[in-house]
Design a protein around this nucleic acid. Structure first.
Lengths: 237, 237
DNA sequence: CTCGATCAAAATGAATGCAAAACAGCATCA
DNA sequence: TGATGCTGTTTTGCATTCATTTTGATCGAG
């Protein structure tokens, strides 16, 4: 990621503007890079919930003027990552339990759709890839390696969405995933051994339905899978 | 709609800026109104497919400067209504057959989700409302009144989405509906008597599943319903 | 006559400037 | 002592300005 936009480090806030480079705007637009950088910055959780997002500060941090920053903020507001209060600046959107549930349900619906579409298009090679990751995930499960398990888990869901071959779906899914990722729902499966096993069984069912190209069935499983995931995450607050 | 933003009429383009009023920014933000106005303007199809969207012109039309307009354009680009080519301005996004199919599929997935959620929450009063519109639609069908039929049809789908009680879903659904509405898919049911009857039967099934609160089943029906709708629309291109 | 290069005009991307609104601190008063 | 009104500062929203790129046209060569 050799981006033009680079965050100056977080700790020392008293940096003089680091001599803005004036490279001749080669390929990608400055605005787009800034947008992506800001989105990552927020999704990664560097800003506290409900925290003000002062323009001035971010301008200095990213070394740009207010105009492109404000454009990016409008887009992020439209995406639902921040709230834009008139004359009162931007705040990181806080997610109440209800909103979080709503987002999870939409994620479930999107995955359900992805599963249905994937059953129509997926070929054996793609399926084999997913199966490979699935087995890797199973090994992590046996070893009780949560971080590895999570990584595989996320990869599988992402691969199903990709297998749907629907760019609009993929983009929407990514957007919702970002909104949810902000939340620290440490769905701590280690403390809930039952849920972990249940999730593993659900994944077996997912793969089985996918192998059989059973679209409607896979759709249901995926939606319920997300539901259960949400419940496990919220139960533990 | 007594909006601050009002389009000057379309025909005469040689209007001098109509003495911009400087009211003290009362309630709603100027930017938001502009955004909504522009979105409507594009969704309503006032701009040809792939047409350039010249900033200057729109600035004069809406009586504002380029800054808020450009902010709105960024948002619309993020929503997928327009393409923003670097240094080459904005163009109304053209939808090829593939993209249109992808959008329809997502709409189908969203409606499927809405149906599932609606089955969990809907009460008898809401159900009765939908049934009322359904019967009204049936009367339009018997009279072969397409425009009335379409209106009811759209209302029903909207009501199902609303009954899901999920703001995020509702917003996403509205966004996709706007993107699709741009397309002139005159799903001319008059010419395809069979499809019209079939659609009517599908709606009967939808209502039946909703009455029985059969979420998964309704989900399938709605997705297939959208699929068939798309096929009918595209068959006639 | 067609194709390519050069140059003026327009449009875009970003920065700066300015007026209005919100915020913070202090003084005043009940 | 606590609430309230005033004032200076900061922040936001929009307009304007500047630099760069694209666009269109004219001219010339093959």
């Amino acid at each position: 990621m050799t981006s033009t936009i680079s965050e100056t480090r977080e700790g020392g806030a008293a940096d003089p503007p680091p001599a803005r480079r004036r490279l001749p705007q080669q390929g990608p637009t400055l605005h787009d890079e800034l947008l992506a950088a800001l989105r990552d910055y927020i999704v990664e959780g560097h800003l506290a919930d409900g925290a003000r997002v002062p323009e001035r500060l971010l301008c200095e941090r990213f070394g740009i003027s207010r105009t492109p920053l404000r454009e990016a903020l409008k887009v992020l507001a439209a995406e639902g990552l921040i709230d834009l209060l008139p004359n009162r600046g931007a705040r990181v959107r806080e997610l109440g339990a209800d909103e979080l549930r709503a987002l999870f349900d939409v994620m479930g619906g999107l995955e359900a759709l992805a599963g249905r579409l994937a059953c129509e298009r997926i070929n054996d090679a793609e399926l084999a890839e997913i199966e490979a990751v699935h087995h890797e995930m199973y090994r992590f499960y046996l070893r009780r390696d949560m971080s590895g398990y999570f990584r595989c888990n996320q990869d599988i869901h992402q691969m199903i969405v990709a297998a749907a071959g629907n760019p609009a779906l993929e983009a929407t899914y990514a957007s919702f995933a970002g909104r949810i990722r902000r939340v620290r729902y440490s769905a701590n499966l280690a403390k809930d051994r039952d849920r972990w096993g249940e999730a593993m069984r659900e994944h077996e069912a997912i793969l089985d339905a996918l192998r059989r190209r059973a679209g409607a069935e896979l759709s249901d499983i995926l939606f319920q899978h997300l539901r259960n995931k949400r419940k496990a995450a919220q139960a533990e607050g």
